[in-house]
Write a protein that binds this DNA or RNA. Structure first.
Lengths: 246, 246
DNA sequence: CAAGCCGTTTAAATCAGATAAATGTGATTT
DNA sequence: AAATCACATTTATCTGATTTAAACGGCTTG
């Protein structure tokens, strides 16, 4: 019980005590601090963090809502298996990334993107409105400016990809904005390290054109090319790439 | 055994007052009961539902964690725009479906599936373990039994699709099990109504074979065919297919 | 008139302490 | 051996008070 550092971390992301505790416990769970151990009772948790039981209970309830905990009388509060965590929750995503850089996680992110984004582009080519296309175009223009050093490379790239998601006019696709921006923020650092090259504006323009011209197949292929590129980079960087036996 | 699925929806929802209130308010928000109106204060909510403020606060906190609400002193609690709802949360998904049958929602579900599942099948063909393949195969066998009236058609179909998601060995894909099973439960009713035919076992077997043989492209195409089929059915049933302006 | 300052006020946030309900565990009874 | 009961433990719930955050309006000041 001594190993748990209750570093209150000063003036961090917690708007208030409850959110601060949510963040602290959430991170601890994701990092694996409670893996073998039994999870503290709400009274113990409150004492450890120096807050009232109300704050503790509300933080625990939020973590329950995100799939990280479950609670029953007499049995106590227990950490749920990772399979029941809500991985598309912004907080969970953040905690997952904060624990450490993992090529595995980066690969899984992009394996998801390669499913979502090409199809989003294809959808967009069918149903995007002029406003949607304008937003995609705006993202592209920012990328062009970034190429000349007049804007931020990463942020403009993110803006482009999110604009495409929105242009699909399907709320489920739009939901991936956090995953995609997170993946891009992480990927960029990695790809820049492996291969010093910026995002290819021309390749992105192909996606924009296909969407604007209402060509779903071309949009899908163009977007897929963009992400496959990153994915291959990641997989070549990982020597233990299975292939064993299969 | 009556052949019906596990049907007792009752017990889980209202395990206690907090979860009951979570469900009631969540449904009310999704249905749109609070759309124009101002959201009640926690004191008012407590009184309206006949529970204490603690229960109310915990329910509100869970809804906040799911992206449906946000709260600040003096401003009060407010319903968040749908864009910030966590659509992949099981509860949100359920509330969304409970409000009414919507072809739009059904279409959006399947537009997502057509991105996720083919790619999951392709991944599975590359990385699935023998256990994974066995699970996929078990799902298929259940479908065969169902064809002979010895098992439940819907449940076996769901088992198959979820097995493929798991076989991708990517936790993000596995996360879609709720969306997929929900979509299937809804789709089946619809497709059966429109076109009296059961899921095609042979087409599903093609997916299984491609995965077992380690052929990603074939697996992707076979799975895509399955879902495109449903999607087309849905789109033909919807006369107002946009095209306006484009 | 505009901009900044400052109480007032309202709602959430937090605390404290008590009671209720659920549920494993183990002893007791049948 | 099985069913039952008593008990301990932990979450669930209730109550009422206090504190803090922030929107509002009025006031002062440049």
């Amino acid at each position: 019980m001594s190993g748990l550092g209750i570093e209150d971390a000063g003036p961090q992301l917690g708007r208030n005590l409850t959110y601060g505790m949510l963040d602290a416990i959430g991170r601890a769970i994701v990092v694996g601090d409670y893996d073998g151990a039994i999870f503290p009772t709400e009274a113990e948790l409150a004492k450890q963090h120096g807050v009232s039981r109300s704050v503790t209970r509300e933080a625990v309830k939020m973590l329950t809502a995100k799939g990280l905990l479950s609670a029953r009388p007499r049995q106590g509060t227990i950490v749920q298996p990772t399979t029941s965590w809500n991985l598309f929750d912004t907080d969970v995503l953040r905690w997952l990334l904060e624990r450490q850089f993992s090529i595995d996680l980066l690969r899984q992110f992009n394996e998801l993107r390669v499913a979502i984004e090409p199809e989003a582009a294809a959808l967009a080519a069918r149903v995007a409105t002029v406003d949607d296309i304008e937003r995609v175009n705006a993202g592209l223009k920012r990328m062009e400016r970034a190429e000349r050093g007049e804007d931020d490379t990463l942020e403009s790239d993110i803006a482009f990809h999110i604009a495409v998601l929105r242009a699909s006019r399907n709320p489920f696709y739009a939901q991936f904005r956090d995953v995609v921006s997170t993946a891009l923020r992480t990927s960029i650092r990695f790809t820049n390290r492996v291969k010093g090259r910026t995002a290819n504006v021309a390749d992105h323009a192909a996606v924009r054109d296909a969407i604007a011209n209402g060509n779903p197949d071309k949009a899908r292929k163009a977007m897929r090319a963009l992400i496959s590129d990153v994915l291959e980079l990641i997989e070549t960087a990982k020597p233990d790439g299975a292939a064993a036996g299969r």
